[in-house]
Design a protein around this nucleic acid. Structure first.
Lengths: 346, 346
DNA sequence: CTGAAAGCGCTAACAA
DNA sequence: TTGTTAGCGCTTTCAG
């Protein structure tokens, strides 16, 4: 009589075939205990009715949501988008829906950790490139669901990332090997604590390599500015205004290095002739601008994090819960031997 | 006796306070018909038990999921990420969770439109920067949930975007006004149909402005290449190999224009001295590289799309269902008067 | 203002 | 192999 307004339910399918919903349920999920003939009839009926199971209803009884959450701070940064895309790919490949939590500011971040909206909404969580406080870490661990990190240290929880200390050291060693002695570092300020951990580790790598190369770590040569091109530009300006400016600069990230390059260009300082610059990450912009940098496998981190979460959710344990990917120096056109160095044309 | 393993339910809260779950439900959702004193007691109990309602359970009875879905093709492109971030912001601000569907390839895309995983998983859908086929459009309309588009034409459904024809015409007129007569256009090939609509409209704008300026549209001057820096670089090469190369180039997107710039740099052709280049979108890279372009309000498109969806979901109608945002020319350093033009230094 | 009871659409025993 | 029966945790009448 009345046309079906609301979507069909499993009962509709059962009725159409003339069986019980129990059988339909088993058939649809590929469970054993249904004859092949019956399964076919049921699948056909479901198809023709355009039926889909209600995740809410099934989730209510199974206790699983079929979704996983992704927490990511700056989606419009190349690195973050890249990791997200890769993780998304494997998670959807495993049948999960992805719930996105984008926390770009302090307010959103606090809101997330206070209310923990993931609770009861996801079966697991992957955290991308976020430096967590101890309290935040504790909140996540109290979530009662598996959590994995990509480029994020989660303490005991599974995580994939790189050795930032070693990576930064590679960059600085490269500069030292080129004969540079006054090597500066540009860090990002991080009042909001989004990537403080990475920044600290890359600083440590800088210091390690300096010491190892017999170079003095002059505190004046370590400057900070807000993350991004403008920040890098500003920091470079600061370095140029010093009594004895550096001859080479290691920037914590490519975007920062690119800002530095902008300042140098505007100041008419030749790169690499008068100043060498090296970044970190090997983003597409680095390639475009021929920026020497340290590469990491960004996409792969997303893939691995996704796989880890699938494992954690489905098998309750992760085979290899701490993966460190290699970094590698990518020499390009913004680094060269120190001006005035013996045997080198300035 | 036995410690609570599973998260507390509403019944636990009710028991703690000594009321029925009906009352707890009303209290928690701020519904009328609960005394203030009772509501306070209930809120306190819920808080101290660390209780959160199960969206699955409440969704089962209300029929709403509390989530909205976002469909986006290339999350690592600046434009897409930007729109997504803005939409996410307003949607979360309205209390929705965001379910992300990232369809980067044909396979993923087809899978999405065939299985329509959003069904029963979201209360609405925003589609970002996707050129849809008629069948795809029909699938979305049959979804039974509100759909809005950002930089996406959805036929009758609400959408926000720009006037691509007019925007492209602005770019080309700028070049014509500078005295250029042989003006080329670089389009993106789009075998997979991801942004064919935009590309076609920008081509139409190019043709309009050419005709309007009394210039001939030479088919040889319209070249295509895969979207991105490499594509733009390749297309520029093609243009340079022609018998009578253009003196100015309009690229469908900044990323493509940037590729063109790379080729020109490598070829030793002065920009804008010997060749003018203009892009579209005004991405951060355009600013960095001092690329003349046509700007659009990307962030605002995301905000508006988000607001539209909230309206559609909550009020079942959108006050202003077709918003066209303005574009504006951003003259920078990659465009100048045609070489050899009277009164101009080549 | 509050309680009782029915039921949302499904799954998971347990029977048959 | 299939059906029956309880719920899963919540909202929503309808009574009181």
């Amino acid at each position: 009589m009345s046309p079906e307004q609301s979507p069909p339910t499993m009962a509709d399918v059962a009725r159409a075939v003339g069986v019980s919903t129990g059988t339909v349920s088993r058939a649809l999920r590929g469970q054993p205990g249904v004859s092949d003939a019956m399964r076919r009839r049921i699948l056909r009926a479901a198809e023709s009715l355009d039926y889909v199971v209600s995740p809410a209803a099934s989730g209510l009884v199974t206790g699983r949501t079929g979704s996983v959450a992704v927490l990511v701070p700056f989606i419009s940064r190349w690195f973050h988008a890249q990791v997200l895309a890769a993780a998304h790919q494997v998670l959807r490949g495993s049948g999960f829906e992805i719930v996105l939590y984008h926390v770009e500011g302090t307010a959103e971040r606090r809101e997330f950790f206070e209310t923990l909206p993931v609770r009861r909404r996801a079966d697991g969580l992957v955290v991308i490139a976020l430096s967590l406080t101890d309290e935040e870490l504790a909140r996540l661990n109290g979530l009662g669901m598996p959590v994995v990190g990509a480029s994020t240290d989660l303490g005991p929880a599974p995580a994939v990332g790189i050795d930032d200390v070693a990576g930064a050291a590679k960059a600085v060693r490269h500069l030292a090997n080129l004969g540079h002695r006054r090597i500066a570092m540009i860090r990002s300020t991080d009042e909001e604590g989004f990537h403080g951990g990475v920044s600290r580790r890359r600083l440590a790598g800088y210091e390690d390599a300096m010491t190892e190369s017999g170079l003095e770590v002059d505190p004046a040569l370590v400057v900070s500015a807000p993350w991004g091109i403008d920040g890098g530009a500003r920091a470079m300006g600061e370095l140029l205004s010093q009594r004895t400016p550096p001859t080479a600069v290691f920037a914590e990230a490519d975007e920062i290095a690119i800002g530095a390059l902008r300042t140098l260009r505007r100041a008419g300082i030749a790169v690499p002739g008068e100043m060498s610059v090296i970044g970190f990450d090997d983003s597409p912009m680095a390639e475009l601008l021929d920026l020497t940098t340290v590469a990491q496998s960004v996409h792969e981190q997303g893939l691995i994090a996704g796989r880890m979460l699938v494992e954690a959710v489905q098998q309750a344990r992760v085979a290899e819960p701490a993966v460190r990917l290699e970094t590698r120096l990518v020499p390009r056109g913004t680094t060269s031997a120190r001006p005035g160095r013996p045997g080198t044309a300035g």
